[in-house]
């Protein structure tokens, strides 16, 4: 649990973050979005005290984050940034081992952790451990960057546009991997991005920042249906709204009784994908099968149209 209470950051006359209060539930993904200069990165960096707030408090599991020296606090919180920030003169294994080494873990424990993380991120420890960052592809470097952030098993992981430097296909894969990792370690993730697609894909809750203030903090569905301000609406993109709404829910919640002709689709795919399949196949409805392959109903164009309009 992260409790941000009345946090303000001023640089001279300019207020970068103004009186922000948020409560972030444990084991969730919270995405902070906003245009550049909205103060989202500054807010993130105040959680691990890379930036010291001018006023207000931040508590992690009830404990004020100023009760420890900054560097000790940061060793307990994962931190991953755009462009990975790997140390070019250290191998992949040494990079991942950075925080455990700072914490004084013994050699065997560090080696085991490095191997575990590399395997989890689909990198062969024997092949990738001894390599240098510049020998890796962009996607691999980014995975090592996240692995390094998770090495000391932090409860909280802060990410500042972690996928910003990746091409779209690798980025989508990296996002799915991150969600899997988050489930695996039950980490609380706070992620900053300006990519709304990414925000809706990853977030349990989204906080929209504008000129240093949080203008809306809610679930993706709620935000789509009831954007708090014109700014939020423009950020979502009026033309994208129905599709985003369909994208955040799976077919499972849109199943209607009955059956239909044609090739069945899985209840686990997004409603947006179902709409796309319907349009492409030219049918009005498609049969839906559950995770066990049993027919559970149908999904129809009309039904999806209702949902896309926010009237489900």
């Amino acid at each position: 649990m992260i409790e941000i209470e009345g946090i303000t950051k001023r640089y001279g006359e300019t207020t970068v973050v103004r009186d922000v209060s948020l409560t972030i539930a444990p084991r969730t993904v919270t995405v902070i979005v906003g245009t550049s200069g909205s103060g989202k990165t500054t807010l993130l960096r105040m959680i691990n005290r890379l930036v010291e707030p001018t006023s207000g408090t931040i508590r992690l599991d009830g404990e004020d984050n100023r009760s420890l020296p900054g560097y000790e606090l940061r060793r307990r919180i994962g931190y991953a940034i755009q462009g990975h920030g790997l140390f070019p003169h250290r191998t992949v294994a040494q990079n991942i081992a950075t925080v455990p080494t700072l914490l004084g873990w013994d050699r065997a424990r560090i080696d085991a952790k490095v191997a575990e993380l590399l395997t989890l991120f689909q990198l062969d420890p024997a092949a990738f451990g001894p390599r240098y960052p510049h020998e890796l592809s962009g996607g691999q470097q980014q995975r090592v960057g996240v692995a390094r952030a998770l090495a000391a098993e932090p409860k909280v992981l802060l990410m500042d546009e972690p996928f910003g430097a990746l091409d779209p296909i690798i980025r989508a894969k990296a996002q799915d991997d991150l969600l899997a990792i988050q489930k695996h370690f039950e980490t609380t993730i706070v992620l900053v991005t300006h990519d709304m697609e990414e925000a809706f894909h990853l977030a349990d809750r989204i906080a929209v920042m504008d000129k240093g203030e949080v203008v809306q903090y809610t679930t993706p569905a709620e935000m789509l249906v009831k954007p708090a301000t014109g700014f939020v609406e423009s950020l979502i993109g009026a033309g994208e709204r129905p599709f985003r709404l369909l994208a955040i829910e799976t077919v499972a919640t849109a199943v209607e009784p009955g059956t239909a002709e044609g090739k069945a689709i899985s209840s686990a795919v997004s409603q947006r994908e179902a709409l796309s399949t319907l349009l492409w196949s030219g049918r009005k409805a498609l049969p839906v099968v559950g995770p066990d392959g049993v027919l559970i109903g149908k999904v129809s164009l009309d039904g999806l149209a209702q949902r896309a309009a926010g009237r489900s």
């Binding site: 691990n48 890379l50 560097y71 000790e72 606090l73 940061r74 060793r75 307990r76 994962g78 931190y79 940034i81 990975h84 920030g85 790997l86 140390f87 070019p88 950075t98 925080v99 700072l102 960057g145 390094r148 952030a149 802060l158």
Partner: peptide
């Protein structure tokens, strides 16, 4: 690299 070094403690 510098930012990451600070950020991880």
């Amino acid at each position: 690299a510098n930012d990451a070094a600070r950020g991880i403690g």
